[in-house]
Design a protein around this nucleic acid. Structure first.
Lengths: 234, 234
DNA sequence: GTTTTAACACCTAGGTGTTAAGCT
DNA sequence: AGCTTAACACCTAGGTGTTAAAAC
């Protein structure tokens, strides 16, 4: 099941060149003996400008017992797949560091509040259309809008379990489904991973930074009921 | 693509014993050289009582240009699949006869109004979870609630195209995805078909029989706004 | 004190039959 | 006259931040 290294370090890519990531970008140009079906894969993060706006304020994502969607939604455009080959697309979340945070309202900033709590169960979220052919994945934007975040360590709904007040980096994985051989043995060659630094966030049970709240209200259609100003101003 | 005989006759099974259909039920006990993955498959129609209530009045299903869901929804429970084998589940609709109908309001009954119009394009509706393993299909009820009916001959949304004022029999197909050989050549052995006579209906652009309208309002949650009497009376 | 929970009003998104107008 | 269409009010279903109370 766990054929990815959950403990692998978070890549340190600059914001400005992260619009498009070639396969194995996080490996930093190291040796990359990947299957040909994944070597050419390129992934572009959608809603990049919105993600940047949140990232500049310090993105917060609500976690609830029942599960809460992410906003912005993680959406990507993919190219360079083998149109006829089958792929599985999935996401996971890895801790950015070993710290617990708290928000200082008087200074409107996040402070380190100690060592991280025990790590939440590291789950994978398979895109519901998986598996599908490359042609299908490349046809239009791939959206992970069914993905939900929870702080319930005993969650039984397949949601992604995160610790509140901890910082996370979403990761996106493209896995080639090799029909010819035992996929378990060659899995390490048949996938590649993409990390977009601007999608990092701190999990919270209630918003801390009021500017994050305002940007969510301004940009999320489901929060329209809380808008007071002109929505086009954003 | 069209590996089913769209023009095959509608099976004439009695209402009373149609609760559960074994594979190849429509073949009437004839020779049935099917693959072992489909021979043992059994399908049970859900909401059977509701379907019978509608059938006794003469079920009508709305067709619209944009596409309209069926109510009751076609839902089945499946058993007897090979849990590890992959199956595709799909539906189609075949004309019950070669006639066009009209409703006589004064006698509250359907009359034959001539020969059928030119047949609408015969489409297949693949269940969106297809393909999936037998274990997945048997885990819980399979619902075709995404299926929509349209009278637009030029429909480009993948909906099922039907002629209004014509009578149809929904059919349900279980197709075993054979990984070993050319599935095209052996397709005739790898599927079986189920027809439930109580799911027959006449396609309409507006309800004709007022008792059908009342039963829809009473039993469809989305029509609750039109209820006047106690819903528990049904 | 800080963090979490649950009920809530207010939205989006889309499935109902109704109705009046339009079509043939 | 028979049939179809489109706008509509009224639902279901579920995604928002708010708020006050609860939990720790």
């Amino acid at each position: 099941m766990c054929f990815f290294l959950l403990s692998s370090p978070v890549p340190q890519l600059s914001h400005r060149c992260a619009l498009t990531l070639p396969c194995c970008a996080e490996a930093g140009g190291a040796t990359c003996a990947k299957a040909p079906q994944v070597t050419g894969v390129t992934v572009q993060l959608e809603m990049h400008t919105l993600w940047q706006q949140f990232d500049q304020l310090g993105t917060e994502m609500i976690v609830t017992k029942a599960g809460r969607r992410m906003f912005p939604t993680f959406q990507v455009s993919i190219s360079g797949m083998d149109p006829a080959a089958e792929y599985v697309l999935l996401m996971d979340f890895i801790p950015v560091d070993d710290k617990r945070y708290r928000y200082a309202f008087h200074s409107s900033s996040w402070l380190v509040a100690g060592r991280a709590d025990v790590a939440a169960p590291g789950r994978m979220h398979f895109h519901p259309d998986s598996p599908a052919r490359g042609s299908q994945w490349m046809k239009q934007m791939v959206s992970f809008d069914a993905l939900k975040l929870t702080n319930n360590l005993l969650d039984d709904n397949g949601h992604m379990i995160l610790n509140s007040m901890h910082r996370y980096q979403p990761r996106f994985h493209v896995v080639y489904v090799d029909p010819r051989r035992d996929s378990q043995l060659h899995a390490h060659r048949n996938f590649c991973t993409f990390s977009f630094p601007e999608t990092r966030f701190i999990a919270v049970t209630a918003y801390q930074n009021h500017r994050i709240t305002q940007l969510k209200i301004a940009s999320n259609p489901f929060a329209k009921g809380f808008r007071t100003t002109d929505p086009d101003a954003w």
